[in-house]
């Protein structure tokens, strides 16, 4: 018999699954359709957040805190990613005066 607080138990796990799936798909559309590099970044953050919430929800329903530790590490890595990515975007802007990804097509085959 597992133990779980009553407050958590009132919301089925499926709700979190569908919410995370919806947010993840919104992030995918954002990455694929937006042209501004910073908004693509924001969409990546949305996808990371959706996955984080699902991980926290599963760990909570299993009453195992290890999943929440993983979420903590994912947050640390996401912070590092944003720092480096924004530095790269600012350098791109200094060089070509634009961060429109449609212009950055030199590597396109």
């Amino acid at each position: 018999m597992q133990q779980l607080p009553d407050v958590i138990r009132q919301i089925p796990l499926n709700n979190y699954v569908w919410f995370s799936a919806a947010l993840f798909c919104i992030g995918i559309i954002g990455v694929l359709t937006r042209r501004n590099a910073i908004i693509i970044f924001m969409s990546i953050e949305l996808m990371l957040n959706a996955v984080n919430l699902l991980l926290a929800a599963f760990s909570s329903y299993k009453a195992d805190p290890a999943g929440q530790v993983f979420v903590f590490f994912i947050m640390a890595v996401a912070a590092a990613e944003v720092a480096v990515g924004l530095a790269i975007i600012v350098m791109i802007y200094r060089n070509i005066q634009s961060i429109d990804v449609g212009i950055l097509n030199k590597l396109k085959w």
Binding site: I8, A56, S59, S60, M75, A78
Partner: peptide, 29 residues
């Protein structure tokens, strides 16, 4: 939602890291 799912530490960390750090960086960008 983190708080509702019983991950109170992650809820606070979300506000600190994402809103206080990442979002400010994005707006600076």
């Amino acid at each position: 939602l983190y708080v509702i799912v019983g991950a109170d530490f992650l809820g606070v960390a979300q506000i600190l890291v994402y809103i206080g750090g990442i979002l400010v960086l994005l707006i600076f960008g």
